[in-house]
Design a binder for these strands. Structure first.
Lengths: 131, 131
DNA sequence: AAGGACAGGGAAAAATTTTTCCCTGTCCCT
DNA sequence: AGGGACAGGGAAAAATTTTTCCCTGTCCTT
């Protein structure tokens, strides 16, 4: 486990929120669980682009924060499913707000961003790619 | 300027939102501007904890995204002030939502987090420190 | 002439996050 | 016995972000 060298400032609400959902794949994972894709292997299948190891790390982190929890069914082989805690449920509308703002403004942001740094390497959705 | 090696996935609204406000000090900077602390030097004074260079980089990025823009007054020495673009203004309520969720849940998150990894090194606000 | 405020940025180091590679088990099916 | 699905993690490499250090100017005041 990585040991921080610089203490985190977590007294600001915004810093806390971003810590929880700011990870590269966290939102996607939360979205899976919201859509009833609850088992690790199912999430792995859903997120082909991302290595299982990475997903596991994020799941663990979200579990650490008390956003999701695990049910381990004593079957054979053991079945694991993730569910939202109450706090986790309260996070969903927040994600919706972010998702909405992002979708509303992504063309604007991407265009502006491209205007400045043409060196950037942005992956457009397939429908917009032109190579 | 850093040249990405892995293309970004920016078709998801959430990824866009987090790209824009996810930087370590972006939210604080936006909050300064919102409170009429508009000049680079004033922002530097407000954010003593952060080196001016870093703030400048974030300001530049926010400007790139079209969240803020610069007014350069032809005085001597030149005076610079940052303002929100329309899109930038639309981001403010989003930040409020994040801030509110974070403030509502930070004790819960911090406690949960500490429960798991006691090795973590979290800087509490002064009022809560006990060393 | 020296010093400070102002706006700004290059280059490299350090810190952190993300990724890859590969390993541990159990069980089921063929 | 071999192969695949399942859940999970150590260790190191790579990528990215953040930070430090120090430099460029101009102008104003002492």
């Amino acid at each position: 486990m990585y040991q921080r060298k610089i203490p985190e400032l977590l007294d600001c609400g915004l810093a806390v929120s971003i810590k929880v959902i700011g990870g590269k794949w966290k939102a996607w994972i939360l979205d899976c669980i919201r859509r009833d894709i609850r088992r690790p292997s199912a999430i792995h299948r859903e997120m082909q682009e991302v290595k299982p190891r990475i997903i596991n790390l994020h799941l663990k982190e979200l579990e650490d924060y008390g956003i999701i929890y695990k049910e381990i069914y004593a079957e054979v082989p053991a079945r694991v499913e993730y569910y939202f805690t109450e706090v986790g449920k309260s996070l969903l509308p927040v994600i919706d707000v972010l998702e909405l703002w992002g979708n509303t403004n992504k063309e604007y942001i991407n265009r502006k961003h491209a205007d400045y740094k043409e060196g950037s390497c942005v992956m457009l959705p397939e429908s917009q790619r032109q190579n």
